[in-house]
Amino acid sequence: MSIQHFRVALIPFFAAFCLPVFAHPETLVKVKDAEDQLGARVGYIELDLNSGKILESFRPEERFPMMSTFKVLLCGAVLSRVDAGQEQLGRRIHYSQNDLVEYSPVTEKHLTDGMTVRELCSAAITMSDNTAANLLLTTIGGPKELTAFLHNMGDHVTRLDRWEPELNEAIPNDERDTTMPAAMATTLRKLLTGELLTLASRQQLIDWMEADKVAGPLLRSALPAGWFIADKSGAGERGSRGIIAALGPDGKPSRIVVIYTTGSQATMDERNRQIAEIGASLIKHW
């Protein structure tokens, strides 16, 4: 067993022997301040990774656009098919120029040779490549099948209805392509620590998230040296922004954090800054 596999296998073990965790309302004060600064709703939840206990939450059962955070769930569904012998990570998928959609920095470079399922998941999570996500959605049967996968996990809230990039439209009061912070946090925890996926697939999923290259201005910008984070960000229309993450000190994750916002007129930089400040408060009061 590799060191990384050992780390993920012992996530519940280490967490069980940690000192009790206590909620700190100071972080919620910052979440509410972010709402004021952005002029928009902000949803927040913080779960203990081992027990699933909610440590703090704000608007945990209000719907927010998922945006690209759905790509972690998508690759979880792909990995479940791999575990069941219905898919192979090494299978190569070929596609054409007509398949390319807006923001496809990886797939646009491989029109000639195609990409493997493993490479597509890596591109979808680490670079948020939209064509990679659409190609992977095709392998599982489309958005409705991802929703069905989530329902089978016990998540009857999260739903995907459309493809990239239309799913980022974020129309107010439109339930399409949305989740709730509580539902997303619980589902992410199941994917990373539950028995739904094999140990190898859980490790692969967290490795992809740990290698995320496009979430630097968010929670990662607030992390002290030595902290662990595996995350996936999302951005959408109407001032929408979000991030889902597993993080913790001492090089291992111990909490799940989900943050979503929508309806702001603020710039992307300002949305990023507010999420980073929430992260800084979380870490300060850990």
Rank of each mutant, 00 (worst) to 15 (best):
V82D: 05
N134P: 04
K109Q: 04
D250S: 12
V78P: 04
L197M: 02
A182P: 12
D231H: 13
G226W: 01
T27E: 14
L49E: 00
L223Y: 09
R220C: 11
M184G: 09
W286L: 07
P60L: 03
K144T: 04
D155E: 13
L146Y: 05
D174H: 05
M115I: 11
D161L: 03
L160A: 07
S51D: 04
E210S: 15
G236F: 15
F228E: 15
N168S: 15
A84C: 01
W163Q: 14
M209H: 03
I206D: 07
P217E: 14
A182N: 06
L146N: 02
L135I: 12
G251P: 10
L49N: 01
I45A: 13
K32C: 10
A235P: 13
N130Y: 09
D155M: 14
S240A: 09
A225C: 08
I206M: 05
G236N: 00
L100N: 09
V82I: 04
E46C: 07
Q86K: 11
D48P: 09
L49S: 00
L55I: 08
T158E: 12
I93D: 00
I140K: 07
P224A: 11
Y260R: 13
L28M: 05
Y103R: 08
E164A: 12
Q86L: 13
L160D: 14
A34Y: 13
M127N: 10
M184H: 12
L218K: 15
D48S: 06
P105L: 09
S80V: 15
S80A: 13
Y103A: 14
F64V: 08
L74V: 09
I45S: 10
S104W: 04
E119Y: 02
S51G: 06
H24P: 00
E270V: 12
T158C: 14
A225P: 08
I243D: 12
G263M: 00
L282K: 03
R91P: 13
L38Q: 01
S57V: 02
G52R: 10
C75L: 02
R159D: 15
L223S: 04
T69I: 14
G239I: 14
G279Q: 14
T131D: 02
T261M: 13
K30I: 15
Y44G: 03
L247N: 06
P143D: 08
G239C: 14
R255I: 15
V106L: 11
S201G: 03
D177T: 08
V31E: 12
D129Y: 02
Y260M: 15
G263L: 04
L135Y: 03
D174F: 08
P25H: 02
D212Y: 11
T147P: 03
L218V: 15
K32M: 07
E102R: 00
K232Q: 11
I244W: 11
F70D: 13
H151I: 09
E108T: 06
S51P: 01
A245D: 12
K252T: 10
G248D: 10
I140R: 02
D161C: 01
T69Q: 09
E277Q: 09
L188N: 15
P25Y: 14
G242L: 05
T116A: 05
L49K: 01
L197A: 03
A77S: 07
D250T: 07
L192P: 13
H285A: 01
D113M: 11
N130H: 12
M180D: 15
G39P: 10
Y260W: 13
S128Y: 07
E87I: 06
W208V: 05
G263D: 10
Y103C: 07
A40M: 05
E277N: 06
F228S: 14
Y95L: 10
M180F: 13
L150Y: 14
D155T: 08
T107F: 03
A34I: 09
G279W: 15
L196D: 06
H151V: 06
E102Q: 00
D129E: 02
G251K: 15
A183T: 02
G52D: 08
G141W: 00
S57D: 00
F64H: 08
S281Q: 02
W286A: 02
E35Q: 01
L282C: 13
S80K: 14
T178Q: 14
D113V: 01
K213N: 01
L197D: 13
L205E: 06
T261R: 13
E26F: 15
C121S: 00
D36M: 03
T131Q: 11
T186W: 13
L89F: 01
E56F: 12
A276I: 11
E237A: 00
V42A: 08
T158Q: 13
R41C: 07
G114N: 10
K144Q: 03
G251Y: 04
V101G: 12
A230H: 06
G43K: 10
G236P: 15
E26L: 11
T69V: 12
W227Q: 09
Q86T: 08
R176H: 01
S264K: 00
V82T: 01
W208M: 05
E61D: 04
D250A: 09
K284R: 06
A148Y: 03
K53A: 10
T178N: 14
R159S: 11
I171N: 00
D212G: 14
G52Q: 12
E87A: 01
T69F: 05
G76S: 06
G234W: 09
L111M: 08
G226V: 06
A182Y: 10
G236R: 13
A124R: 03
N173F: 06
T267L: 08
P224Y: 09
E270S: 12
Y44R: 03
E237T: 00
E35D: 04
A77M: 12
E46V: 10
L136V: 04
N134A: 04
E46S: 04
I140Y: 05
D207G: 03
L191P: 12
D177S: 08
L100R: 03
T27S: 10
K30S: 15
D129K: 01
R241W: 15
V72W: 02
N272D: 14
P105C: 02
I140S: 03
A124K: 02
T198Y: 03
T179L: 14
A230S: 09
V117R: 03
G52C: 01
T187H: 01
M67Y: 12
D48L: 12
M115E: 06
L188K: 15
V101E: 14
A133N: 02
S254E: 06
L205W: 08
L188F: 14
A182W: 09
A84F: 03
R220N: 13
T112F: 14
A77G: 03
L247K: 12
T112Y: 04
L100E: 06
M184R: 08
N152Q: 11
N130G: 12
T186E: 07
K144A: 03
G242M: 08
N272W: 08
G194S: 09
I54C: 06
L196P: 06
E175M: 03
E166D: 07
G239K: 04
A222W: 15
L188T: 13
